[in-house]
Design a protein around this nucleic acid. Structure first.
Lengths: 334, 334
DNA sequence: TTGTATGCGTTATCAC
DNA sequence: GTGATAACGCATACAA
């Protein structure tokens, strides 16, 4: 065989010939369809085995009209939050024989619509995770993306199933916790501007901080580095407590404080968001708002799966995150 | 349309009819093939646009004999090391228009051969990452998996391209570092028994510890929890330095020591392996052996890509990891 | 129960 | 340059 040449794969016809039956019968045996004479079935099995036959998934996909593949698009594969969602979907889908095709938009909102369509065309359905696009854009795109489900985002008027998190509730719990500890000046390390959940956290923060403490917002980002870099700026504002956009940012801040000899939580309190696995193993253990990440993925799959079966998907769900008080928060220093 | 019914997708024929040309011409236009009369091309473009036509990727796959999809199989999607490799592949492949289908074997070595074959059949090629199977099994499987490349594993006699890491060199650097700090009793938190790289680390450890320090090996695992759980056991052996199977384990141990008030590195030194992003932001910053994770993925893609093009792949590569001395190691306490 | 024939949506070969 | 037509490999309605 020349390099680049097509490998001569063994087809259903080859098996049929070897077993002296029709291709249809081979197909029936391979798919455990209807009742095939046991003797014929045996011959087919044997022929298939000895020829090393495997049905072409692509041909099956074309003939059946489905690939048993679903796509997931995430803003950043490097973020443990999305990795967990991916895991949840991958695991749940795997049980039903579906595989997952993953695409990373690398936090480039403008690429999102194209990538979403592109990857969607390759599979039976799509999970759109924390899309950074505007509501309007998603509404226009929806028709081309169906069937799909939305994770970590709510869009009014969209008929796609949604799996969301009540970030506002999480923020309120956080605010109550910090206010209860006596903090009167809090800094928020803001995430990507395109992140809708960042916007939601910001709005809720402003609203619920009112009358409880002064709030300073600092542009930051979504990665370790961003938190590390922003930590002393935050401290410079006079804040006694710092809320990270997510755990990555909070952990980055923790790292910086440790590096410059600022004690947490004695001199400053730090909290995160998501409760990624590392939050629990940080020093000090990070107080954070726990989002059920793998569950998000599982619920997303349940809905996509239902739609793929032509059934009515379960109702939209909105998880209420749980405040996980650990060691990175304490009473305000006096 | 009834639920479950097939969506009536617009086909190449619909476009041909609308543009009053043959399907062949439409195909030529869509693929920018040969020279098509500019007027006809315009009509086709327009018809395609107004009908919202997108070529069926599945049908293209069948006709062209390739899907522009590759698979990656990893032992644990929850491990940042594999996530980084996945990212590296995903990014590199994406540039050439290839998408990545990811499968997680959930550290179940027995499932691996089946999953590898299954996922391979769905795509044009496979990246086998840190397979837990025995050499013999891989050798027997090889024929069914081609084309594929091996990451983080070397198998004698296998003609598949390989991208590996010289773990022995990493361990030797670690041993020299710890011995130089005066440590005379070291504990190794051992990873999954099925992990070949764990075995390699273990062997090298035994060999190079000889005459420098006493070595105690404790069964542990590959996750945070495992390290957290094993940390005080390790301390109980009288070891003054602890080597984790990977950063996750080391970070878990760090967490435990912080929880029980054991100071790192004053009372005990801790080192990891891989240099995941979190290692740098831990408190104290984790001394570890840096493995170029995304580069592994990129190199893997380069080789798979070459084979897919029918070219000779680049020679096997073996990265020498770099010792990253940070703050979790210090002179032995006296 | 089993085989025949057709369709799935493209690409590619070959005449025109 | 352009259009029939035959693969591509399988599933399935229908006939036997």
């Amino acid at each position: 065989m020349e390099p680049g040449e097509r490998a001569p794969s063994v087809t259903i016809r080859d098996v049929a010939r070897a077993a002296q039956v029709s291709p249809a019968t081979v197909s029936r045996v391979m798919n455990r369809r209807s009742t095939v004479d046991v003797e014929l079935a045996r011959r087919v099995q044997q022929a298939a085995a000895s020829l090393g036959y495997h049905p072409s998934v692509v041909a099956q996909g074309l003939a059946r009209g489905r690939t048993e593949l679903v796509s997931i698009l995430v803003p950043d594969l490097g973020n443990p939050m999305f990795q967990s969602v991916l895991r949840g979907i991958s695991r749940a889908a795997g049980v039903e024989g579906y595989r997952v095709l993953v695409t990373d938009s690398h936090e480039m909102p403008l690429e999102e619509p194209f990538l979403a369509q592109e990857t969607r065309l390759r599979t039976d359905g799509l999970v759109l995770c924390s899309p950074r696009s505007h509501d309007q854009e998603l509404l226009e795109l929806a028709g081309k993306l169906e069937p799909f489900v939305l994770v970590n985002r709510h869009v009014e008027g969209l008929l796609a199933p949604m799996v969301a998190v009540d970030y506002a509730a999480g923020i309120r719990a956080l605010v109550a916790h910090l206010a209860g500890l006596g903090h009167r000046h809090v800094a928020y390390l803001s995430g990507p501007m395109a992140s809708v959940s960042n916007q939601e956290r910001l709005d809720t923060l402003h609203a619920s901080a009112e009358g409880r403490f002064e709030l300073t917002v600092l542009e930051c980002g979504s990665m370790h580095e961003d938190g590390y870099e922003a930590a002393d700026r935050a401290l410079g504002t006079g804040a006694t407590a710092i809320i990270g956009y997510n755990d990555l940012v909070a952990l980055g801040a923790l790292g910086k404080f440790h590096a410059i000899g600022v004690s947490v939580p004695d001199e400053v309190s730090v909290v995160g968001f998501d409760d990624i696995a590392f939050a629990r193993y940080a020093s000090p253990m990070l107080t954070t708002v726990a989002v059920p990440q793998e569950a998000l993925g599982e619920e997303a799959w349940q809905r996509l799966s239902a739609v793929l079966r032509g059934e009515e998907p379960p109702a939209d769900v909105c998880f209420t995150p749980r405040l996980e008080v650990r060691q990175s928060t304490a009473r305000v220093p006096r």
